[in-house]
Amino acid sequence: MKQYSDRQLQIIKTVTESGFSAIEALSEHFSVSTQTIRRDVNALCEHGELRRVWGGVEPPPVSGNLLYAKRRILNVRAKRQIAAEVARHIPDGSSIALSIGTTPEMVIEALQERANLKIFTNNLNVAMQASARHDWSVTIAGGQVRAGDRDILGSEVEAFFDRFEVDFGIFGVAGVSPDGGLLDFSEAEVGARRAILKNCRTSVLVMDHSKLGRAAHMRGGNLSEVDCLFCDKPLPDHFAASLGSARVIIAPAFESDGADLGNTPREGTSQ
């Protein structure tokens, strides 16, 4: 197994968390020359830990989904920004269905100041955090737990969400295709997400900008089907064009006005 220096390990962590880092920024952060950083980066790229791109370095592309532990720290700042912004729009006493993934988990973390929430989920990480609150109720789907992912999928999960009608359905995706298609890595992931969308009054898609154009092989739904999308950056024009009808609100976390999601008028243009 390749042994990396402490600085190289920190470079991997920094780039993984941010999604991209410039060579000059890494040089300043670690207080070494750009030549030293380039040597470290070149070695890491040779071993597949990172990928060189114009102006800097980014995490390598993956053909399947990352392990949960790596997803948990990937673009973590953006995910926390998104989660905090979503939490501002959720009032006390709301009923919420939350799906699998690390961004919905961070939404639960950000909701800790809310009172009397009713949580319905197939995400064990969400359930564990929510169950620590004595004034919240938590209902979890039954079935076999996916090793490493800490969630439950399958027909039982879809039937579980079909039993409820909640105020908010909050879910992520593995990727978004250029035509606005919502992508995941399995039919079961798509099925759970679509069951949440079908059984909520306001559907909320949470994703950081790295999901735009990210490849995943299972298509299920489109951006035009969701009520609200929270992202850390505005959508590029070719993605925004796929919104279609006036059913979708694009609310970048740094631009939102803080109105309740359920009371926000639907508009066709990005916000």
Rank of each mutant, 00 (worst) to 15 (best):
G220Y: 09
F120N: 00
E24S: 15
V126K: 02
H217I: 09
H209V: 05
L153K: 07
R7Q: 10
R150P: 00
S210K: 03
V166I: 12
I12D: 12
T139A: 09
R266M: 05
T36L: 06
V57M: 10
E24Q: 13
V62N: 06
H47Y: 13
A22K: 14
E156G: 10
V32A: 07
Q3P: 01
M106E: 15
G181F: 00
F239L: 08
P91Y: 00
G220R: 06
K233I: 06
E24V: 11
I96T: 01
T14V: 08
V206M: 06
C228Q: 13
V107I: 11
E58G: 00
G172D: 01
E28C: 02
A22Q: 15
D257T: 09
V76N: 12
P234C: 01
V173K: 00
T14S: 15
E28G: 04
R52C: 07
G56W: 10
E58C: 03
T36P: 06
F30C: 10
E255N: 09
S31N: 15
F161V: 08
C45I: 07
V226E: 04
T102L: 07
V145L: 09
G142P: 04
A215N: 10
H47W: 08
V176C: 07
K211P: 04
E156D: 14
I90P: 05
E28Q: 14
W54R: 14
G221I: 12
I96S: 08
I170N: 02
T202Y: 00
R71S: 00
